[in-house]
């Protein structure tokens, strides 16, 4: 069979053509591949929570709708708009940097960070409002509600909390990218660092795009 494998050389030549890069050298393809694999793990991290959500939505459909009614759609919608805007500014920043427009890229990156900060601030006010109304895990008020609502808010705080944590990690990451863009370590020829930060940021955005309807729009 190995003979067959040897005979296959030309057919599989495309696979071999990938090779030839040097260990430790600058290989943007490898860096991007690594980032995509990391994003797979992120998708599965959230994916498990989405499965849990699906299971309980199936079991407690009506109570989930009641729980959802306690969330403010305008607040969620504003946050969605903010995150979508931040994804746009991130993409524009990378496009600007690729065309060597450094100042413009930096401004767009700071806009992205500003959006991230605004998102977190709104989220904090939203959570604080829930806390004052006794809607948080273990609160006496919440424990008097239906089981479905307890689970709904258990998942709400877990999933939006994990998402907010990712936004929080994104801020220093983008700032780091901005500082490297300023010093020229990230430049039109070597911009994979910023591209990867962008990939991460788009994933954070994408997760929210699923969280928003699943929690806010099912009432």
């Amino acid at each position: 069979m190995a003979d067959a494998g040897a005979a296959r050389t030309s057919a599989a030549g495309a696979g071999g053509a990938e090779g030839g890069a040097h260990a430790g050298g600058y290989d943007p393809m490898a860096a991007k591949m690594g980032m995509w694999l990391f994003l797979f793990t992120e998708v599965l991290l959230f994916g498990a929570l989405f499965i849990v959500y699906g299971v309980y939505l199936h079991g407690f459909t009506w109570q989930f709708r009641q729980g959802s009614a306690r969330l403010s759609i305008p607040v969620g919608a504003v946050n969605t708009a903010i995150l979508l805007t931040s994804s746009l500014t991130m993409a524009l920043a990378i496009a600007a940097l690729r065309r060597a427009r450094q100042v413009r890229a930096l401004r767009l990156l700071f806009a992205t960070v500003g959006c991230a900060g605004a998102f977190l601030a709104i989220k904090a006010f939203e959570w604080a409002g829930k806390f004052t109304h006794g809607v948080y895990p273990g609160a006496g008020f919440l424990l008097e509600q239906t089981k479905g609502e307890i689970i709904f808010f258990g998942l709400y705080f877990t999933m939006t909390g994990l998402h907010a944590l990712h936004v929080l990690v994104g801020i220093p990451l983008i700032l780091w990218g901005a500082s490297r863009a300023r010093t020229g370590a990230v430049n039109p020829e070597r911009c994979v660092f910023l591209e990867n930060a962008g990939l991460y940021w788009h994933l954070v955005d994408l997760v929210w795009i699923y969280l928003f309807p699943l929690f806010y729009l099912i009432s």
């Binding site: 959230f46 849990v52 089981k147 689970i151 705080f157």
Partner: peptide, 30 residues
């Protein structure tokens, strides 16, 4: 890569269950 994150988040759910009582695995809370 594909399987480990699932157990990672599951273990975190245990921690959240113990720390905050989110109820996801607790029949008394649904």
């Amino acid at each position: 890569i594909l399987a480990t994150p699932v157990v990672g988040i599951t273990l975190l759910l245990i921690l959240l269950e113990r720390l905050l009582g989110i109820g996801i695995f607790d029949p008394a809370k649904g």
